[in-house]
């Protein structure tokens, strides 16, 4: 960890993936201390596999975590997390902040599939995920937010997801919910009582030539082509389990 201060924990984890020239992927940089610990695990498919292990609880109010992954040309990397991330109240009234930065070069492919982010009662977290892709990069990115653990009130959560391809922003979405969020967040236009919300972004250069048509996936989910070589699956569900099922089904349709 970079340091514990009176206001909270600072943590930064970094992953760099590089094609090793023999058809595999090396990880010349894989570091992180304190709250976020990336660990290389045995990969079942091509490319490298990393699990991010939460070595401390949190983020708690006042904490600042940063997680960055850079894939150089031709690298293939799958990143998951060992458990759900649980945002909890801290000792300060400050919000916690969690920034994820992903850079994917031409010919590289990143699967960014962490477990859910759970906003526990009383927590306050601002999370940003920003993916910068070269024109020939591929990405599968999943984000799932769960508002409160079972039977408790949600915490305050703001989550911004930005995806840029070849310097052009193709997706920029911010969801704000929980106590103190702008009005109507739980109303019929935004979440209508659903407690789990998720996005799956898939970027493939071939979508530029053969766009995927929009598909309605039941009551609370849709698969839509973005204004660029990318597809977004947006889903709301009563709980994390049903949300995952919706996103998995949508993902299977794209294979």
């Amino acid at each position: 960890m970079d340091g514990v201060t009176v206001t909270g924990v600072r943590g930064h984890a970094r992953i760099v993936a590089r094609a090793d020239g023999r058809g595999g992927t090396a990880l010349p940089v894989l570091d992180g201390e304190g709250p976020l610990a990336p660990r290389r695990t045995r990969s079942t498919g091509p490319g490298a596999k990393v699990m991010v292990v939460g070595a401390m609880s949190g983020p708690l109010g006042g904490d600042r975590f940063t997680l960055s992954a850079r894939l150089e040309e031709g690298a293939r990397l799958h990143v998951g997390s060992a458990a759900a991330t649980l945002a909890l109240p801290g000792q300060t009234k400050d919000a916690a902040r969690y920034d994820v930065r992903l850079d994917v070069a031409d010919g590289a492919e990143l699967h960014w599939l962490p477990e859910q982010l759970i906003a526990a009662e009383g927590s306050d977290l601002y999370v940003t995920t920003r993916a910068e892709l070269a024109a020939g990069a591929r990405l599968v990115l999943r984000e799932e937010q769960v508002l409160g653990r079972t039977g408790e009130q949600p915490g305050r959560l703001t989550s911004r997801l930005t995806v840029r391809i070849a310097g052009r922003t193709v997706l920029d979405q911010e969801l704000s919910c929980g106590p103190g969020a702008p009005g109507g967040w739980d109303g019929p236009a935004v979440l209508a009582g659903y407690r789990a919300v998720g996005q799956l972004v898939v970027v493939r250069p071939r979508f530029a030539r053969s766009p995927v048509p929009a598909q309605v996936l039941g009551e609370g989910a849709a698969l839509v082509p973005l204004a660029g070589p990318a597809v977004l699956v947006s889903a709301v569900a009563p709980d994390a389990l049903r949300l995952r099922r919706l996103l998995d089904e949508a993902s299977a349709r794209l294979d």
């Binding site: 911004r160 930005t162 922003t169 920029d172 979405q173 911010e174 969801l175 704000s176 702008p182 019929p188 236009a189 935004v190 979440l191 209508a192 659903y194 919300v197 929009a214 598909q215 309605v216 609370g220 989910a221 849709a222 839509v224 947006s234 889903a235 709301v236």
Partner: peptide, 16 residues
């Protein structure tokens, strides 16, 4: 990027 990006998941899903 300075512009707000506030989103309403149900408006998007239901529109389709």
């Amino acid at each position: 990027d300075a512009l707000p990006a506030a989103s309403a998941p149900l408006l998007e899903v239901m529109a389709e």
